[in-house]
Deep mutational scan, measured.
Amino acid sequence: MIFPGATVRVTNVDDTYYRFEGLVQRVSDGKAAVLFENGNWDKLVTFRLSELEAVK
């Protein structure tokens, strides 16, 4: 189960963010908004829950 605050990895091989890890900001309607941070940039991207896996 994916909840806000969880760290997730993108599993969709066709996505630009494949294998990126980010922090879930919100979850609704089968989608999750994931925040990616890297140095001087932040990006908030929405994914279907089926495209994400929780990082242990």
Rank of each mutant, 00 (worst) to 15 (best):
Ala54Asn: 10
Gly30Leu: 05
Gly5Lys: 03
Arg9Ile: 09
Val34Gln: 01
Glu51Asp: 15
Glu53Asp: 05
Asp42Thr: 15
Phe47Pro: 01
Trp41His: 10
Met1Tyr: 11
Trp41Gly: 13
Gly39Trp: 08
Gly39Leu: 09
Thr46Glu: 14
Gly5Phe: 04
Gly5Gln: 03
Tyr17Trp: 13
Thr11Val: 13
Arg48Asp: 14
Pro4Ala: 09
Phe3Asp: 04
Phe36Ser: 00
Arg9Asn: 02
Lys43Trp: 11
Met1Phe: 11
Ile2Phe: 07
Met1Gln: 11
Thr7Val: 13
Thr11Arg: 07
Gly39Phe: 08
Ser28Pro: 01
Tyr18Val: 02
Ile2Pro: 03
Phe36Pro: 00
Asp42Gly: 14
Thr11His: 04
Thr46Ile: 14
Pro4Gln: 07
Asn40Trp: 08
Val24His: 00
Leu52Ser: 00
Asn40Arg: 11
Ser28Met: 12
Thr46Gln: 09
Thr11Trp: 05
Pro4Phe: 06
Leu23Asp: 03
Ala54Ile: 15
Leu52Trp: 02
Thr7Ala: 08
Thr11Leu: 08
Leu35Trp: 11
Asp14Tyr: 12
Gln25Pro: 00
Arg48Met: 13
Ala54His: 09
Val24Ile: 04
Leu52Phe: 02
Val55Ile: 11
Leu44His: 05
Leu44Phe: 06
Arg9Gln: 06
Val55Met: 06
Thr7Tyr: 13
Ile2Trp: 04
Glu21Phe: 10
Thr16Val: 14
Tyr17Arg: 05
Val34Pro: 01
Thr46Val: 13
Gly30Thr: 05
Val27Glu: 02
Trp41Leu: 10
Asn38Ser: 11
Arg9His: 04
Gln25Ser: 06
Asp14Lys: 12
Asp29Tyr: 08
Ser28Thr: 10
Asn12Lys: 13
Phe20Ser: 07
Val10His: 01
Asp29Gly: 10
Asn40His: 11
Lys31Ala: 08
Tyr18Gln: 01
Val55Thr: 07
Asp29Ile: 05
Glu51Asn: 05
Glu21Tyr: 11
Asp14Ser: 12
Arg26Leu: 11
Thr46Pro: 03
Val10Gly: 01
Lys31Gly: 06
Gly5Arg: 03
Trp41Tyr: 10
Lys56Ser: 13
Gly30Glu: 06
Val13Ala: 11
Ile2Cys: 05
Leu35Ser: 06
Ala6Asn: 07
Pro4Ile: 10
Ala32Asn: 01
